[in-house]
Computed example of a mutant assay.
Amino acid sequence: QRYVRKEGKCNVHHGNVRETYRYLTDIFTTLVDLKWRFNLLIFVMVYTVTWLFFGMIWWLIAYIRGDMDHIEDPSWTPCVTNLNGFVSAFLFSIETETTIGYGYRVITDKCPEGIILLLIQSVLGSIVNAFMVGCMFVKISQPKKRAETLVFSTHAVISMRDGKLCLMFRVGDLRNSHIVEASIRAKLIKSKQTSEGEFIPLNQTDINVGYYTGDDRLFLVS
C-alpha cells in the first residue's frame, strides 16, 4: 500500500484523537479544512439561524409593544411599519442584515429598543459576513486540485548516468501556465532498526535531488 498517493496526499489516517476540542480553538482553519458539502451546509445554516434569531426578536418586540393589535390603526406608531407577523419580521431581519432595504418595512424613531437591536444586528451581520465570506474565499483559493495536472512517471528506474547509478523519474505539468519557482523534494521511506534496538516502521530520509545546485527546479518558467 502506498505511503503517498499519486495526487500527493499522505495515505495516513489519524486515529484515537481524544483532544478534539483543540479543533474548536482555531475554528476558522477547521472550517476551511472541512469538505465542501459540510462547508456549504454550515454557510447556509449560519445565515439562516441568524436571520431566524433576529426575526424572532423583531416579532417579540412588536408583540410586546402591542403592534399586532393595532395593525389597521392609522394613529398608532409601530416599531416597524408593515410588520404584521413572524413572516414579515423574518423578511425584515433578512433585509436588515443583508442591507437590501426594500423600503416597505421601515423602523420608526418611536422604538428605542428597535434602534438598539438594529445596531446589534448590523454589527453582528458584518462580523458574520467577514467570517463566512473570508472562509469561503480561502477555501476557493486553495490550489488543492492543481496537483491533478501534475503527472509523474508510472515507474522509477535506476540507470547509469555520468558513470553513476542514478534513480530517475519524470514529472510533467499539463497546463500552459506553469508553476513559478517549482521545486521538487524526494524522501526515502523504509523501516529501520536503530543500534539501541528501537524499530522505526516509517523512517524518512531526504534524497538529494539537486537542492544545492538548483537542479531541483522543475519547469522552464522561473
Rank of each mutant, 00 (worst) to 15 (best):
H155S: 10
E181L: 11
Y21L: 12
K187Q: 06
E7L: 15
T20E: 14
T194C: 06
S93I: 01
I94N: 07
R175H: 02
M168V: 11
R2V: 08
E198I: 10
E181M: 11
N11Q: 09
M68K: 03
I57E: 02
S195R: 07
L117T: 08
R185H: 05
T81V: 15
D215K: 14
V4C: 12
I57L: 13
F131P: 04
L118I: 08
V49T: 01
S159A: 07
R2H: 08
L188I: 03
N82T: 00
T30E: 13
D26P: 03
L52C: 13
F86Q: 12
R175F: 00
I179H: 00
C166I: 09
L119K: 11
F53P: 02
G134S: 08
G8D: 06
L150D: 01
K187E: 08
E198Y: 11
I57Y: 01
K9T: 13
V4D: 02
L91G: 15
K35N: 11
G66E: 09
I127Y: 15
G210R: 07
G163L: 04
K110S: 10
A130F: 15
G163C: 07
S126E: 06
T30C: 09
R146I: 04
S159P: 00
C10M: 14
V151W: 05
I127T: 11
F137A: 10
F152K: 02
K190W: 00
H178F: 08
Q121R: 07
I189C: 08
S126A: 11
I100N: 12
S191C: 04
N82S: 01
M56C: 14
D173F: 12
E97C: 12
N39Q: 12
V46Y: 02
N82H: 04
M136G: 06
V123K: 06
L60D: 04
V4K: 10
S177A: 11
D216M: 04
S153A: 03
L52V: 10
W59P: 00
G163H: 06
F38E: 11
P143C: 05
I189W: 03
R161C: 02
I107Q: 12
H13W: 08
S153I: 03
H13R: 13
F53N: 01
T194L: 12
N84V: 07
V32H: 00
F131M: 09
G15F: 08
V128A: 10
P74R: 14
F169Q: 05
F92E: 01
N176E: 13
S126Y: 07
V12W: 15
D33R: 15
L52I: 10
L174H: 05
C166F: 00
L188F: 15
V157F: 08
I64S: 05
L117I: 03
D216C: 05
G172P: 02
N11H: 14
F38Y: 14
I100Q: 13
I158H: 06
N82V: 00
R18Q: 04
Y23Q: 12
M68H: 12
T108C: 01
M168A: 06
D215V: 02
F137W: 13
R175N: 13
